[in-house]
């Protein structure tokens, strides 16, 4: 799997990530019999109550070139830090309804300890470093901007 580590994979895809897409991705690993453990993280759009109104969807947008660059850097760092066999990240852009999946992180290794730690770390890095924005669409058609809780203003 060495040659795959430096390939740039496109992470951003239009719309929600389907269960079929995830299942296909899992099935693709059946030939990689050196793997003993997979961890999958799925980020789902939550129907929060904001100002008394329900969030019905999130409209994601991104600074795409920078986002892909950051995803690639996160991937490379994770390969350097953990003993992983392979790793896949997929993130939605555009409208994703409440209950649908917007983030799919799939980490595989020989043993389980490595994948649990790596997967949690990768998700944290994505939330902190990747320039993606989410417009929360409320039930009455108005919107609010979602903010991840660990955002740090580096210029302040």
């Amino acid at each position: 799997m060495e040659e795959k580590k430096h390939k740039v994979h496109k992470v951003i895809q239009q719309g929600a990530i389907s269960g079929e897409f995830i299942a296909t991705s899992i099935n693709k690993h059946s030939g990689k019999t050196g793997i003993g453990a997979h961890t999958i993280f799925l980020g789902q759009v939550r129907s929060d109550k904001k100002e008394g109104k329900e969030v019905v969807a999130i409209d994601y947008s991104a600074y795409e070139e920078m986002a892909e660059k950051e995803f690639h850097a996160i991937r490379e760092e994770a390969f350097a830090k953990y003993k992983l066999t392979c790793m896949h990240i997929h993130h939605s852009i555009g409208l994703v309804k409440a209950g649908e999946i917007s983030l799919f992180v799939f980490v595989s290794a020989v043993h389980r300890d490595e994948v649990f730690t790596a997967c949690a770390d990768i998700v944290t890095q994505i939330k902190e470093r990747v320039p993606i924005w989410g417009k929360e669409i409320l039930e009455d058609g108005t919107h609010l901007w979602k903010v991840n809780n660990k955002y740090v203003d580096k210029n302040g």
Binding site: Y63, M66, L103, K127, E128, V130, P131, I132, N148, Y151
Partner: peptide
């Protein structure tokens, strides 16, 4: 130059 408001990925 890009002005980047708080991220909301994930």
């Amino acid at each position: 130059v890009a002005l980047l408001p708080p991220y909301a990925g994930g």
